[in-house]
């Protein structure tokens, strides 16, 4: 019984063990003077800073602010990106005309355009959300096009042989077939969205975790800064676990 449990949970246990081992190695390197403690503090100091950051810096409120911005920007990227991808899939001319531009948008360092967005939307969460949304849009559009275009022709022929309408063909064959690739796009997109949101919060010193990291860094509170970064990682993990659950629910057979 215990053996079966261990075998089933082996990847997770191995992952946790690797993380703990890495932390211990870092601790030894910093304490041994191999790594400068004024650049990277010892992991034990970071761990001790967690309590301070939670109690004094209202970390839960900041996590909530970042998470809300993430949900709005990430959700909007999906709601807008998937239909745009579907439209581009339908129009070969538009697809050929736009694909390279959208690819360039995905690669562009949108964070650096924050002054422009500040002028347009003011120093408010609106700026952060719009920038996250813009940066998260391209991967979803590109992966939606790719997913729809890679639908196996035989499935389309099944649809044709059953005299399916274009709408039935889209919702019952093309879209479900494309879902795994669309989810890859969502994962990429949400990575971009979170990076942009935290980055802009940091740059304009407004909002959730990015602002906190900025403030802690300004105070030269390095253990606190790294503790704040750990919370960003936790928010990211939470979003990706939730996304995995949604994906498994939508595609039970895969």
């Amino acid at each position: 019984m215990a053996e079966t449990f261990l075998r089933r949970r082996a990847p997770e246990l191995f992952g946790v063990a690797t993380l703990v081992a890495s932390v211990l190695v870092f601790e030894a390197l910093v304490r041994g003077g191999v790594v400068n403690r004024y650049i990277i503090p010892p992991p034990s100091d970071i761990l001790l800073a967690f309590e301070r950051v939670i109690v004094e810096e209202h970390i839960l409120t900041r996590c909530r602010d970042t998470a809300i911005e993430m949900i709005i920007a990430g959700g909007a990227s999906v709601l807008v990106g998937v239909p745009i991808g579907a439209l581009l899939y339908r129009s070969s001319l538009w697809r050929r005309a736009m694909e390279d531009w959208i690819g360039a948008l995905a690669a562009a360092p949108i964070v650096l355009a924050f002054p422009l967005f500040l002028v347009l939307f003011g120093r408010s969460p609106k700026t952060i959300i719009v920038m996250g949304f813009v940066h998260g849009l391209a991967p979803i559009i590109l992966k939606t096009v790719e997913g729809l275009a890679s639908t196996r022709p035989v499935l389309i022929n099944v649809g044709r042989s059953l005299k399916m309408t274009p709408s039935q063909m889209f919702w019952k064959i093309l879209f479900p077939s494309a879902l795994p690739v669309i989810f890859t796009g969502i994962r990429l997109s949400w990575t971009f969205v979170l990076i942009t949101i935290v980055g802009v919060e940091y740059l304009i010193n407004l909002g959730g975790l990015g602002q906190l990291i900025n403030e802690l860094a300004e105070r030269y509170d390095l253990p606190g800064t790294y503790a704040g970064i750990c919370f960003v990682v936790m928010v990211s993990v939470l979003f990706f676990v939730a996304l995995e659950r949604v994906e498994a629910w939508l595609q039970p057979g895969r």
Partner: peptide, 11 residues
Amino acid sequence: MVFQEESTFPW
């Protein structure tokens, strides 16, 4: 019609 290629819907 039954097709040569595998044509079930995996989802």
